[in-house]
Design a protein around this nucleic acid. Structure first.
Lengths: 250, 250
DNA sequence: CTCTCAGCTATTGTATACATAACGCATACA
DNA sequence: TGTATGCGTTATGTATACAATAGCTGAGAG
């Protein structure tokens, strides 16, 4: 048969994984819903083998859950799961910051971090923050965290942080915040930015303990922030929100 | 054809995953070595599809690494990778201990922990520690850590700790220690045990910060311990050592 | 003697066929 | 009318066939 359209530029497995992740994050597949392989085959355009590999990867990634009787379902997360994940990530990033500080980082390596800092500063200067500006902020902030993580020079740690980021990055805290137009939002972002500034300083001066403490405080701020935002909303439809904001924010 | 022996009591995928993990940890497959699917099919008795799923899982687990041109190879770890992983796990377990303390744990839930404690106490009473006793210690210690992790009541955290445990649990620190008959070994285990005792106390009294600090110190001890053990050996053949001690120790 | 290119082989990526188990529905009996 | 059982359908687990690519080997030329 094979009238299937085959895109040879990227492996079928990866294609299926990306497509399925999109479907999950966009809310096309709702939490708790069973994923039909056959249906996934149709929507992704790959055949069953790559689809199954993608499903296994997504399960390991934490977005899916294996059903004992067979197959997979979209994992459902509680509010506490999300906030725990944010705190978890903050803890790991704290360790990364400490490693970076203790192991030393050249001025050249700190450059990208400072660039993010400056760019975000620029964005935050406007009041109130536009949607576009907020979106840029989200991207820049994600980049800041990614670069900081890399500076730890610890592959196992970097790997763990990547894994731990799935939920916080997908978490709608920033989105919810922006949507509910929290009066405190601007204020919160400025505090977060201050954290960024101070952590760079701590790393520069090789103060590991201080760098770590700041990142953890940073995460705790994000958790408070999430709770605050959630309280202002009657209903939190987590997954659909993820369609709109796919990168982390705090 | 199908003269293949099929064990229907457990899925082929799981069977293949366990078999391959054993091969890796036993050193039958050396770090950096490419894993041949065909060979894996022969040694595991499963067919290619379950083998591939197992390979993907092992990759996500961190034991394998994907080769860009295709296939997988056994991941090689540096001494720093191992020690970073131990510290990483300690950090996460610190968070777990804090969660447990802050969220409260009933006396009944602490019972298994205290049982481990008592059992290990019993083992450590003998001097010097026999190989059997040491082996029992390793098992009990792993159980202690697992139970403690569960007490956090945080699925995302538990999941991460499980993932982070792959390396430390496989790490030969205890094995090396026992083999090199470190004079300090007994002493170190006693200190570790003291950590266990104190962390239970902290959790009982709901002192989150103290519980966390102890677990992190506990990990730092394990790292020092590993470094010490490694210094006493001219050569560390990591993976084969794993054949002999498959559970964590510190 | 060495380097390069071509062809082959072996291994992976993908697709699909087959087997088996689970779920649902319908029917019959209590 | 409700429950239980059996059959059928559907989906997953597994195996294998097919396709494509990467690496290797050998031969030929410089």
């Amino acid at each position: 048969m094979a009238e299937r359209e085959v895109d040879r530029s990227v492996s079928q497995t990866v294609k299926a994984q990306l497509a399925l992740r999109d479907q999950i994050l966009s809310g096309a597949l709702r939490p708790g819903e069973r994923i039909s392989e056959l249906q996934a085959v149709e929507t992704t355009g790959a055949s069953r083998t790559p689809v199954r590999m993608a499903l296994v990867r997504l399960e390991e990634e934490g977005l899916l859950e294996a059903i004992p009787s067979g197959g997979f379902m979209v994992k459902a997360f509680s509010e506490r799961d999300i906030s725990d994940s944010i705190e978890l990530r903050g803890t790991l990033e704290g360790l990364a910051a400490r490693f970076a500080a203790e192991r030393g980082v050249s001025a050249r390596e700190l450059e990208p971090l400072k660039e993010c800092l400056a760019a975000i500063d620029e964005l935050l200067r406007q009041v109130p923050i536009s949607v576009d500006a907020f979106s840029s902020y989200v991207t820049l902030n994600a980049r800041f965290h990614a670069v900081l993580t890399e500076l730890s020079r610890s592959p196992p740690l970097i790997r763990q942080i990547d894994r731990a980021s799935a939920l916080p990055f997908a978490s709608p805290s920033g989105f919810v915040m922006a949507q509910s137009a929290l009066p405190e939002a601007q204020q919160i972002l400025i505090i977060a930015q201050e954290h960024h500034r101070v952590v760079i300083d701590a790393i520069e001066n090789r103060e590991g303990a201080r760098a770590e403490a700041i990142m953890r405080e940073h995460a705790r701020l994000a958790v408070r922030n999430l709770r605050l935002a959630l309280r202002n909303r009657t209903h939190l439809d987590l997954l659909p929100a993820l369609a709109l904001i796919k990168t982390a924010t705090d």
